[in-house]
Design a protein around this nucleic acid. Structure first.
Length: 569
RNA sequence: GCGCCCGUAGCUCAGUUGGAUAGAGCGCCGGGCUUCGAACCCGUAGGUCGCAGGUUCAAUUCCUGCCGGGCGCACCA
């Protein structure tokens, strides 16, 4: 729909240029706004005003010229109006809106999908929590956002894949092993010294208990050092499985898992650094090796190999991103916690160091979740082991509600999440509002089929009876869906979808409350007296088609966010 | 001190990339089910868009400077 109008406008502009009425060579990109007030029409364009300066003409005159050159205006619009400064307000013929419903029914689950990605390959790295403990709420938000971005990009024609980078090497792993080993010793009745920076969470003891059960048979034959190693690898495996299970119960399957340790084993770190060395982007100073990040706009150079010969975390990350580039992705997206934002210039420097534009890597920042319980902030700390896990949140409020909640707000702003509120009022969580709209429509199908009615198809139905403002309003909202999805995907901002869905659901509820779709089950003579609109079979059929289209869009929208669209609730 | 993010209704937040009289949920107050699901709807109240300049036909949106909040600024990960 929007496309047809845009091309019509473009045609008018070009026509005017041919006649010499306009002289601008490159038109600005034509966007159509949905005006806020009904008297401003269905769609509005601001081209005339943005052309004012380059044309040296009054916006109103330019608008006039455009209108004169609208060759198919008669077929498309009921009304074309020029308002004050130079708004071009278009009222589209209902027949064209009605066609949108046929389009939606025809495309079904594909409605809202697009090809703008042209199959370009994108890798989205998200969550990537250290496998040293369960996922907490903050990870939940990152998971929801990353997952939604993957699905959004796939929806508009990219070939997008999600990946989890496992930090299974280095200091954190050693600490994990030592912590579990200490608890293991305690469980065996021996005193043990707990590592200073170890993990204090109670889950460590539980893991140690599991490991003890596995190791008790062979423990006698192992040296303490061996035992500690076994503790480390077993704990790692247990925790990674836990993370995977948590994500799965959150409805998230990450396609690819990438191990940091594999970079060490395969010497990929050496190779990646060697390549930097040949590009003269590494230098040695004070016994350490440095990456010349400052050449590419980072504030300072960064150590990649310490005096003691150990690699820094950055070295692994360089090798990891080097590997991503080698795998041939057109675009890399890292979903970072906002506290890592200082890392962005550094990683974009890495892109450039390997000869790519810095925007080959895009970063989606996810601000930390401020967790509340009864309006009191819950402090979280891995050190003391006091934190609310993602699992708890899912168990308390459900995966759908948690996801929707995490996706409701722009990811780079703070999110308040009150557990008690979410629990107590789970029934009026916005996600249920949207899902309820879907379920309500489904219930129409059930009632209709009980009455032996057949669901009408859009093509065979006379849709011209859909002229009520509430009906056309719904259709307009539906027609805006594909553009919304595209904008949301390209900006990596899933919250636009949740916002849209709430608006659409609101319109549906309003409609549902005000108008009937199916005739009343029993004939009631006295009810037709008051304000009842005439519900002809024709109108019922057309409205059923409309309801079907709304259902499709609600389902597609929820689906792209990874949220279910239940038929009853 | 430097850098990034944020500041919009009592609270939590949107605002379609610069458009017209700035919106929603919650909360407050008042209404609406004998009929397709009331997990819903309708109405009232609530605003100097942090402050001050600038850019232009037009600024909540872009620029500059302040103020306030959060987070970063390791040979840690």
């Amino acid at each position: 729909m929007q496309e047809r109008v845009t091309t019509a406008l473009l045609g008018a502009l070009n026509g005017a240029r041919l006649k010499g009425q306009l002289k601008t060579t490159a038109w600005p990109t034509l966007t159509l706004d949905a005006p806020k007030r009904p008297e401003w029409g269905d769609l509005a364009s601001t081209v005339a005003m943005s052309l004012a300066s380059s044309e040296h003409k009054a916006p109103h005159d330019i608008a006039q010229i455009i209108v004169e050159n609208l060759s198919q205006g008669e077929q498309l619009f009921d009304r074309v109006e020029i308002v004050r400064p130079g708004f071009l307000n278009l009222t589209v013929k209902p027949a064209l809106w009605q066609e949108v419903l046929r389009e939606i029914e025809l495309q079904g689950v594909r409605y809202g999908r697009a090809l703008v990605g042209a199959g370009r390959r994108v890798l989205i790295e998200y969550v990537s929590a250290n496998p040293t403990g369960p996922l907490h709420v903050g990870h939940g938000r990152g998971a929801a956002v990353g997952h939604a971005v993957v699905r959004l990009l796939n929806a508009i024609g990219y070939d997008a894949v999600g990946e989890y980078y496992i930090n299974d090497a280095g200091r954190q792993m050693k600490l994990l092993g030592a912590s579990v080993y200490a608890r293991y010793q305690e469980l065996s009745g021996r005193t043990a010294e707990f590592p200073e920076d170890g993990y204090h969470g109670s889950y460590i003891t539980i893991v140690a208990q599991q490991i003890k059960e596995q190791l008790d048979l062979v423990a006698g034959e192992l040296t303490p050092a061996d035992l500690e190693t076994r503790c480390r690898t077993l704990a790692y495996q247990i925790l990674l499985r836990l993370i995977r299970d948590d994500l799965r119960s959150f409805g998230i399957e990450i396609q690819s898992w990438f191990s940091e340790a594999s970079l060490l084993e395969s010497k990929a770190i050496e190779r990646a650094l060697d390549e930097l060395k040949t590009r003269e982007l590494l230098f040695k100073q004070d016994g350490a090796w440095w990456f010349r990040a400052s050449v590419y706009g980072d504030e300072k150079d960064r150590v990649v190999k310490k005096q003691d010969g150990e690699y820094t975390y950055l070295a692994s990350d360089i090798a990891y991103h080097h590997d991503k580039l080698r795998r041939g992705y057109d675009l890399l997206i890292d979903v970072f916690g906002a506290d890592h934002h200082g890392y962005i210039p550094r990683m974009q420097a890495v892109m450039q160091a390997y000869g790519h534009p810095k925007d080959r890597l895009q970063v989606v920042l996810v601000q930390l979740v401020k967790l509340l319980r009864n309006e009191v902030e819950v402090k979280m700390s891995k050190r003391t082991g006091e934190f609310i896990t993602m699992r708890e949140v899912i168990d308390e409020v459900g995966a759908d509600a948690a996801k929707f909640y995490f996706l409701m707000r722009d990811s780079k702003t703070h999110l308040e999440f009150d557990l008690e509120l979410a629990k107590q009022r789970s029934a009026d969580n916005p996600v249920y509002y949207v899902q309820y709209a879907h379920a309500r429509i489904c219930s129409l199908w059930r009632v209709a089929s009980e009455r032996g009615m057949v669901r009408p198809s859009a093509v065979e139905t006379d849709l011209t009876v859909l002229t009520d403002p509430d009906e056309l309003g719904l259709i307009k909202k539906l027609s805006a869906y594909p553009e919304m999805i595209q904008a949301s995907a390209l900006a990596f901002e899933p919250h636009r979808v949740t916002y849209y869905l709430q608006q659409l659901a609101a319109q549906l509820h309003t409609f549902y409350n005000k108008h009937r779709v199916l005739p009343p089950a029993t004939d009631q003579e006295h009810n037709e007296s008051v304000s009842a609109e005439v519900l002809t079979p024709k109108r019922t059929a057309a409205r059923l088609v409309l309801m079907g289209a709304v259902q499709h869009v609600l389902r597609n929208g929820l689906n792209v966010l990874g949220i279910s669209a239940p038929e009853h609730m």
